[in-house]
Design a protein around this nucleic acid. Structure first.
Lengths: 214, 214
DNA sequence: GTAACGCTGTGAATTTTTTCACAGTAAGAC
DNA sequence: GTCTTACTGTGAAAAAATTCACAGCGTTAC
């Protein structure tokens, strides 16, 4: 494990992208890759790639670039996928179901181990291999399974309660789709993903471009 | 329209969040808000809020803070929601459907006006008020409707073709869920939203927190 | 052998983003 | 009226992120 220096969110995002890309390159059988090429595939600059890899203490060769399998291994370990991570999903609406669907055949070290919903119609069954429970047993099940992460796709009004319960049960990372600022202890990491915000951003810049075009 | 200075992605994201929050505050009937309070609701600092509003040329009062309806109006206009924006969705899988669902009762100026899919089973009908077409007519329909934005939720292998067709038909902003770097002309804005990347980020920091706890 | 090439690793410079800190101001108390 | 208070607007400082630019090196060509 390289070092514990504080690594920023931005760098982690890029490392994750490098990892996904490297997996594909590895499958294709390419043994080496230059910073320049990896950069292009990920939409960043070559200097950025080199700097990021420097940050996690990985070195390449000046003639052959980076060894793909070795780098993949290193990035994977750095991100903590050496061991299995368990997570749960709360809220089995359309978005929740899309996520359940999404997990089929994804990162095998990120395991979605349970899903919860208040609606009785949606629980006590298995969707895409994931068992669905009523929220009433959420705290208990999460603690028992030692899940580390929670994905929140419930309506805004329920999000804070869900978050609190998850945190009490040992969860230290949340991905929150509800458009509300969650209050959690400082040791818990929260990533907010507000679809409206993302769309409005695209709308703004789409407008800018359209303006320039005229 | 305030000014032409280059405004960064980061600022636009925050403005969008302020906007959503202000709408709720407005509905609640509060007429004024301090930078400090808006900041807390959005998870940023007060100085940040003041700086951002300064960037779009909005001023408050030293005694009453910001006038809520006026600020909401200003931010809305700045983001370009004075007029209607049309967008289309390509890929009516689980994620696409979740997004169709999501749009019910959202920003009334961001109109999802059509959806497309290759699968014949999914088209020629109306889902949540949105008409679904086969991709074969996509270019034609998009151009006719003058859609400005496209949301791509097709598999990785089809994403580039879809993007190219959309751009040819006049789209200048893309929200891309496929884990691939799209090649588009420089006047087109692309926002990539890779769920895997977001999750891996949460996993990393959840791990860090869990480690600290021990 | 040695020359030429094109890569990495990385200090240093630059640019961008965020925070600090305080002058200026309007409202309310009295 | 004057005093107090708590806010905004904003230069300036600080911090963070990115890019530059080049020394140093392994490989290949000849």
């Amino acid at each position: 494990m390289p070092d514990k220096t504080k690594i920023s969110k931005r760098i982690i995002e890029r490392l994750s992208e490098y990892r996904t890309t490297l997996e594909e390159i590895d499958i294709h059988g390419n043994r080496n890759i230059y910073s320049h090429d990896l950069a292009k595939l990920c939409g960043v600059t070559a200097a950025q790639v080199r700097r990021d890899l420097m940050n996690i203490g990985f070195s390449g060769s000046s003639a052959r670039g980076y060894d793909v399998p070795e780098l993949l291994q290193n990035v994977t370990n750095f991100l903590g996928f050496g061991e299995e991570r368990r997570m749960v999903l709360v809220g089995i609406g359309h978005l929740g179901r899309a996520l359940l669907d999404f997990f089929v055949d994804r990162n095998p070290k990120l395991v979605l181990c349970a899903a919860f919903d208040v609606n009785e119609m949606r629980v006590n069954r298995v969707i895409h291999g994931v068992r669905c429970y009523p929220v009433s047993v959420m705290g208990e099940v999460v603690a028992e399974m030692q899940a580390q992460m929670g994905i929140i796709t419930v309506p805004e009004s329920a999000a804070q309660d869900v978050a609190s319960t998850l945190v009490e049960s040992g969860v230290t990372g949340l991905l929150n789709f509800a458009p509300v600022q969650l209050r959690v202890p400082s040791h818990v990491f929260v990533e907010n993903l507000n679809i409206s915000t993302v769309l409005e951003k695209v709308a703004y810049f789409a407008g800018q471009s359209a303006e320039k075009e005229r």
